[in-house]
């Protein structure tokens, strides 16, 4: 579904990503792990088109997307839940969700707004009583739900989630993991970056570990869990 081929990215003169190679198959949950500042968010931002690679290609469903603008990448089926939620604070929960709907004509025509909203409320029933509240008045966990709901309402094929558990209480992190699993079972492929290694390894089908802008490990979580040295060296966990 998504192939990242030998991608190099620079911030000005700083070389951030070095020859990144990734391969994500349809229906997978892929976790991109690593310590702070190793290039996880930069990789996500490059896939969604905020940053442009200096070298290499990104192919999504057979189409090269590394040179097309961000808004067009979003329209072909890649949704992004950024770190820190980044909602539209002055809009209500409902407005934040439907703003994702108005972007695509086909979404407006095929199914009514109500049906779409109903669908995401099945995943996040807690939001039902909050629909008319401005999002700035919600808790961190509720805001995260809105951010995911807004991304889901556009029927994405691939969902990019950047540190979704950041700032959430442990009990909510567990719930979030279940929700990500549920979304995946609905047919959405997921790529997430995470600091919470245990949650990520529980739900992921495939794991990449990054360090210093390079991929250091690629494999399934079981293999990673067996390699204690690797866990300690790159993720700081035993």
């Amino acid at each position: 579904m998504l192939r990242v081929e030998d991608v190099d990215v620079f911030y000005g003169k700083s070389h951030i990503l070095h020859g990144i190679e990734m391969d994500i198959q349809h229906g997978q949950i892929v976790a991109l792990l690593g310590r702070n500042g190793v290039g996880k968010t930069t990789t996500i931002k490059t896939i969604i088109g905020i940053l442009k690679p200096k070298k290499g290609r990104i192919i999504f469903e057979g189409q090269e997307i590394s040179k097309i603008p961000t808004h067009e990448i979003a329209r072909i089926g890649i949704s992004y839940v950024p770190q820190g939620r980044r909602l539209f604070n002055k809009l209500t929960v409902l407005e934040n969700i439907i703003i994702g709907l108005t972007v695509k004509k086909e979404l407006r025509n095929n199914e009514s707004y109500q049906d779409k909203i109903k669908k995401v409320l099945e995943i996040f029933p807690q939001l039902e009583s909050l629909l008319n509240r401005p999002v700035e008045t919600l808790s961190g966990g509720e805001q995260q739900m809105v951010a995911i709901a807004r991304a889901l309402v556009t029927n994405p094929k691939l969902l990019l989630m950047d540190e979704p558990s950041e700032g959430l209480m442990p009990v909510l992190v567990q719930k979030l993991g279940d929700t990500i699993k549920l979304i995946n079972q609905m047919g959405v492929t997921i790529l997430l970056t995470e600091q919470n290694v245990s949650m990520a390894l529980k739900i992921a089908d495939k794991v990449y570990i990054m360090d210093n802008g390079e991929i250091r490990f690629k494999g399934n979580p079981t293999r990673l869990l067996k390699d204690e040295d690797l866990l300690l060296k790159y993720l700081g966990v035993r």
Binding site: P69, T70, H71, E72, P82, F88, E95, G100, V103, R150
Partner: peptide
Amino acid sequence: SPIGKVLIAIRENEERAQLIGYNV
């Protein structure tokens, strides 16, 4: 109208509006 909401979204967070798929 929905256009008005998009304008507000752009004012609030231009990059986010782009990420949803709007040609800012």
